[in-house]
Every structure is written in C-alpha cells, then in structure tokens.
Simulated scan of single mutants.
Amino acid sequence: MDITDQTALVTGANRGIGRQFVLELLERGASTVYATARRPERLSFQDDRVVPLHLDLLDSESIAAAASVASEVSLVVNNAGIATGASLVTGDASEIRREMDTHFWGTLEVIRRFGPVLAANGGGAVVNVLSALSWFAAPGTGAYSAAKAAAWNMTNGVRLELAGQGTFVQGVLLGAADTDIAAGYDGPKIDARDVPRASLDGLAAGSIEVIVDDWTAMVKTSLSSDPAPFYARMTELLGA
C-alpha cells in the first residue's frame, strides 16, 4: 500500500504509538486521518487532515458510529490498548476481562465493523499493533500477555478471512516503547516513532508481520526451542 492520498483511521491516537501513527501517516501523504480516542476533545493535531472521532473499544455502539462516519477509510490501524498489571491467578477478575475485552473483543469489533467499509472502498488494509508479550509472559503481565496472545492469533484468523475481499492484514510486534504504558519499565525502550515507520514500510513491501526491534526478534526465534532456557534467560534479564 502506498499511503499517499489514503484515508486512514487510528485507534488510541491521543498519545504514544497511536499519535506517532497519525503523524507518520500525515508525513507520508495521507489525505485524511481519523484520529480516534475515548476523549477526542483532548486530541491536539495542528493539521486540517486530522479528524478527531470518538471510539471506545469497550463500547460497540461507538465503534459502529465511527464506521458510519469514516465510510471512506482504506486503512485501519488498531493501536488502542491498556495494561492493567493484573495477574491471572490472584488478580482482579474484572481487570483480566477488561484486558481481553479491549485487546481481543474490542479490536475484533473494529475489524468486523470496518471490514465491509474496506471492502466497499476496494479492500485496503488493517494493521494490528501487538506485542512481544503475545509470545511470552513475565511477572505482572499475565492478563496483558494472554490478551495479546489472543489478539495475535485473531490477527492471523482475520487475515485469512479478509483476503478474499482484497483486504491486507498486518501484525506489528514490538517490545517496550517509550510511551506512558511502559512508564514503569526500566529496561531498554525503542522510540515510539519507530513503530509506525516499520509498519508502513512493511505495508509498502507487503509484509504481513513486522518485527520492530531486536528484543522481539529474539523472542520469536526462541519459540521453536525448549521454553525452559528461554524463561531462565528472561528471569535473568528482567530481574524477576
């Protein structure tokens, strides 16, 4: 996909990676970018091509309304997410469900609502921002890791289902980025701008999966091996 003159929609556009996606899309010549957030009045973009739009992943009516308004969209970037820090065994069950409702069900609802919109506009593309934690878990990430794992394989599933209508589906995986959601993490972090750059370069190249950083590449490589040495190494690296 060439971003020039495309109409895009970005969820969670108020800060972090979502905000950087909006800026990168504008830099690459998008004609319109629907920047969505639960509180769109707080968005601050100084560009007439940006259209603030209300969208809450936990509110299916808001997703349907957004799809009705943004009817010319050709690219959907599913970026919005949360990190509750809930553990699976002893954590608050409502927080665990909120993670799954956000990352899996909410993201899937966006795809289900915008799938027909993309089909009507010639196919287009969907980008799902995932995580290296789709493939492993660490202390304090139980709920987040489980939800991102579900979102990762959901991405694979919808890719197959939407291929027939000409819609390209890309998964983007990264470790920690320098954003608010990773504020409590003391390890190395990539620049949030690297994520949309890698993703949009991947769209141009036809890459269905984009690995943004070396950390995530290392995690993916480990998946074909015995997990015991990998988790021993993670314990050492994370100090857990």
Rank of each mutant, 00 (worst) to 15 (best):
A240T: 12
V219H: 03
L108N: 12
A150V: 09
F136T: 00
G166Y: 14
P139R: 09
A240E: 09
F168M: 08
E209Y: 04
T4A: 04
Y231E: 00
R233L: 15
A67F: 04
S134V: 02
T90A: 11
G142M: 04
A192P: 12
A163H: 11
D5E: 11
K189N: 01
F114Q: 05
M234L: 15
V172H: 02
L162F: 14
T235M: 01
A13N: 14
I82W: 01
Y34N: 03
P40M: 12
A150W: 06
S207M: 05
S199Y: 06
V50L: 10
L173A: 15
V22H: 10
V76C: 06
N78K: 07
A182G: 05
P52D: 07
L238N: 06
A66S: 09
V77K: 07
S71Q: 11
D191N: 06
R113C: 09
R159L: 01
V126N: 05
R193S: 15
L55S: 02
V77C: 10
D101A: 12
R98W: 01
M218D: 02
A151W: 01
V50N: 05
S87N: 14
A176Q: 08
P229E: 06
D194V: 02
G106M: 07
D194A: 15
S44H: 12
A192Q: 08
Q170L: 08
V127A: 10
T167L: 14
G166K: 12
Y231P: 07
G29D: 04
A228E: 11
G175M: 00
M218V: 00
V22F: 08
P116H: 13
A192I: 02
A93V: 12
Y185T: 00
I190Y: 00
A8Q: 03
L237C: 00
A120S: 14
R197L: 10
A176H: 11
V50K: 09
L133R: 11
P188R: 10
G166I: 12
G157V: 13
R197G: 05
T141R: 10
K148E: 04
Y34W: 09
A149R: 06
V210L: 07
R42M: 10
V33Q: 06
G91F: 07
S134P: 03
N156H: 08
D92E: 14
V126Y: 03
T102E: 04
S87V: 03
I3L: 15
K220T: 03
A120R: 11
V69C: 04
R113N: 09
L9C: 03
G12V: 15
L200P: 14
A151E: 07
R98Q: 14
L58D: 15
A149N: 01
A64Q: 11
G122L: 03
D194S: 13
S134L: 07
T155A: 03
V126S: 06
Y231H: 08
V127S: 10
A67V: 01
R19C: 05
